[in-house]
Design a protein around this nucleic acid. Structure first.
Lengths: 207, 207
DNA sequence: CGAAGGGTTGAATAGTTTCAACCCCTGTGG
DNA sequence: CCACAGGGGTTGAAACTATTCAACCCTTCG
């Protein structure tokens, strides 16, 4: 919404409601009729799907500033995944119907939606490529590299959420994440709770 | 483009060029500067990425009517995957810069882009879920179910492309696809070249 | 002190990839 | 007319990677 003109911004905000959820609350389920899309204000939301055995697979983890469900703006009358609060969260909920109309009226809103969808699509395609090309330690290494500021030398990161959520985000079982961290130990990665020390960023790039 | 008004359609077509490529031709590579997006008119295009060992992973297989690269309309100055003709193809190439301007002028063009991006995003998210939830035989069964017209009883499908391309699309090595087909034999799936017979669609759903 | 949640570890297992051999079909050239 | 080469596909064996299940550890909190 940062690029909207003031009047468009007002209209968008008018179609939104701010809500809170507690950790583990379900925002919606796969198949529920969809009339809203969401934007995360604080906390993390987990989007996931179930197979018929009831096993869960995370599709995406959304943090503050991320939007989800906006792909239903044009087609689709029901959500095709579940959304769950991974911790206590606040979110903005936008009425799909209203925003659909706004997008037809206001160029800048339509452009903002295109922008948002494009980013999501690129992120999601990159995720497929990573799933298909990288092993567990490589995924973890990449996550660390993307989330540490320094381009060389040493670095340290504090995970913004539980390790089990990171595991889901990377398409791994929690045990696999744990083992990936231990296998990165000999590349100079030290883990203590949520704090992660990286001795040499370039060494990680070699993984 | 089916939903565009005639004047918008004319403008879009004016920003497009029709091209042909031969099988295995590379349309563009990861990292190439991006000034166009594409729409497939006939044949199939393979979008894929490489890891540093040179191993390839398909991200998407585009057939007639599919669009790719449109996620670069707002951000991004280079392609983030490779595109290769999987057979002799004809495609329409749209100038990103021009379409970007058109989207700002014409509501229906912006809406068509939103529509297109939404569909791509949903498809891509479904792909992640499938990769993370399903085994090889399940992926193949799902592909067959999605591509056979009949809702029950028997059915037959002719694959529109080589099996190796299907393997890539499903995130499998060609050998794994072959084995998946043999494991589906006892569920009533018979394969002869590109022709596939399904004895009982409901039996496939149980996989 | 005890319980609970999150995380780690080990062992067994499942699923897929990799590599190599082979098959089948088609098209080509002697 | 036959031999052969090449592409696409299949099959087997071995290797690898991740999952599953169970046990256990550690910290926090009542």
């Amino acid at each position: 919404m940062a690029d909207l003109t003031p009047p468009s911004l007002v209209k968008m905000l008018a179609s939104a409601t701010v809500l809170s959820f507690e950790s583990r609350d379900i925002l919606f389920r796969e198949g529920d009729p969809a009339d809203c899309f969401y934007s995360v204000l604080s906390g993390y939301v987990r989007l996931y799907r179930l197979n018929k055995d009831g096993r869960e697979a995370d599709i995406r983890v959304c943090g503050a500033g991320d939007t989800f469900g906006e792909c239903l703006l044009t087609t689709g009358d029901s959500y095709d995944y579940n959304a769950q609060a991974a911790e206590n969260i606040t979110i903005a909920r936008f009425n799909l119907q209203k925003v659909r109309q706004l997008a037809q009226q206001e160029h800048d809103i339509a452009c903002a939606i295109i922008h948002c969808l494009s980013n999501d699509l690129r992120r999601t395609m990159a995720c497929i490529a990573n799933d298909r090309l990288q092993t567990a330690p490589q995924r973890v290494a990449q996550y660390l590299l993307e989330n540490c500021q320094s381009a060389m030398g040493s670095a340290s990161i504090r995970l913004p959420f539980q390790k089990s959520l990171l595991a889901g985000k990377l398409g791994l079982a929690p045990e696999a994440l744990s083992r990936a961290f231990s296998s990165l130990r000999h590349s100079g990665v030290t883990v203590r709770g949520r704090m992660i020390q990286i001795a040499d960023v370039n060494a990680l790039r070699q993984i």
